[in-house]
Write a protein that binds this DNA or RNA. Structure first.
Lengths: 229, 229
DNA sequence: ACAAAAAATGCTGCATACAGAATACAAAAG
DNA sequence: CTTTTGTATTCTGTATGCAGCATTTTTTGT
């Protein structure tokens, strides 16, 4: 039982932490989500309850609950009497998602310009500067993460919970795809340029310009991955 | 065991149906969703596994799975060690949802004008005419349902699966609210007028006009329910 | 009589057990 | 050699049982 690592209820006094230990359900959901996003579970793969449960050191019951949760999130598909399989997205699916995402980010941009505080905007600027550093240093992984953080941050500035929810959901579904699409240097440069524009538009609280840039940015993103599908 | 009706696995040869009988999971999810929407389970209510399960004639396991599914849908909230409670939406939450919904419907309108076939548009017209009949007959319940159907139909015309998904999700969350907001005659009339405009814009494939009407329609919808919160 | 501690109750969280469906395999017939 | 049918295995779907946490009630001390 040495290989069945890391997911079961924390054994003992795990630190003096009065920190509310995250429920197993959440842990499982996050873990499975990551496995799907990172490709450990490829699209079309059947989620084998017995095997997967043993592998994670959890019994079938909480595992099934987590799977149902993910099904509602749209990451896996439930087939009656046959369990769950990792959902496969077609090129059109991806394009459709990006279309919606674009619309949502345009909305978020407009709202953010209206309601965000100067302080919040400064926070985004900080993220942006960090990201630029990563770009210069060629640190793709951290760049990628900060990139996403910035988009999420702008959405948060809109102070619309529902918008943020859906945005995260779509981002999650798309993460798998973007994980693949590693664009070349020239496209990367243009993406960075778009980000520069975004920030300055945000700081100027220029609704239409920010909205336009966000839209263009995502449109280009589609252009960057369309071939890889 | 006479009162525990109707949800357990179909007893026997239930018809000669080669129809794939819906899995219990789906049935449960739909049932619980309806109970929440229709107010059988009010916001803040704890979903008592034992009691609820007995009431529905199902054991706790599938019930818990259904609850997790609904949690991901955003209808209930999971509280660690305390089960699930029906989520309560604040006035701002509703406004935020309507803001997003508006943006999505505007997008759907634009797309629909581009890609929908004449046939599909005719189908929406049919629904519309039916709805008008209900309006004239004062049949609020059917009017309400057709109203929603029309909006969903327009979204479907956009042929964007992701858009449709999210739209349904938001509509579901809002159903509870709309269930309450019974507007007066004058507001009802204006809503009908807006629908007239929608249809004619759609038939003319006038993107910007359709988009504008859809947006205005939802804005007014907010105006209609804002006091009731 | 009031406050604090301790016991008791009820519910959730997880694991296990059992039944039914689907699939894979094997044997037999064409 | 192919096809079909019967059987065996495997996995899902559901029920039940047990342990731990939360809350409420009771008891005890001042």
């Amino acid at each position: 039982m040495d290989e069945t690592s890391s997911l079961q209820r924390r054994p003992e006094g795990s630190g003096p932490g009065p920190i509310r230990r995250t429920a197993l359900h959440d842990t499982l959901v996050n873990h499975l989500r990551d496995m799907i996003i990172e490709g450990d579970l490829e699209p079309g793969t059947r989620l084998h309850e017995g095997q997967l449960g043993e592998q994670l050191g959890v019994s079938r019951t909480p595992l099934r609950e987590a799977i149902k949760y993910l099904a509602s999130e749209g990451l896996v598909e439930l087939v009656p009497s046959r369990g769950a399989v990792v959902k496969r997205f077609s090129a059109k699916d991806v394009k459709d998602m990006l279309t919606v995402l674009r619309s949502l980010e345009e909305l978020a941009g407009k709202l953010a310009c209206e309601v965000a505080s100067d302080n919040d905007i400064a926070g985004v600027r900080t993220l942006h500067d960090e990201m630029i550093d990563c770009y210069k240093a060629g640190d793709r992984l951290r760049y990628y993460k900060l990139n996403q953080d910035i988009h999420s941050a702008i959405v948060k500035l809109s102070q619309n919970a529902s918008l943020a929810d859906i945005h995260i959901m779509l981002q999650t579904r798309l993460k798998r795809i973007r994980f693949i699409g590693h664009e070349g240097p020239e496209k990367w440069a243009s993406a960075v340029a778009e980000h520069e524009e975004m920030i300055s538009a945000l700081e100027a609280r220029d609704q239409s310009r920010l909205s336009e840039v966000l839209g263009r940015h995502l449109f280009n993103a589609w252009d960057r991955v369309r071939d890889t599908l």
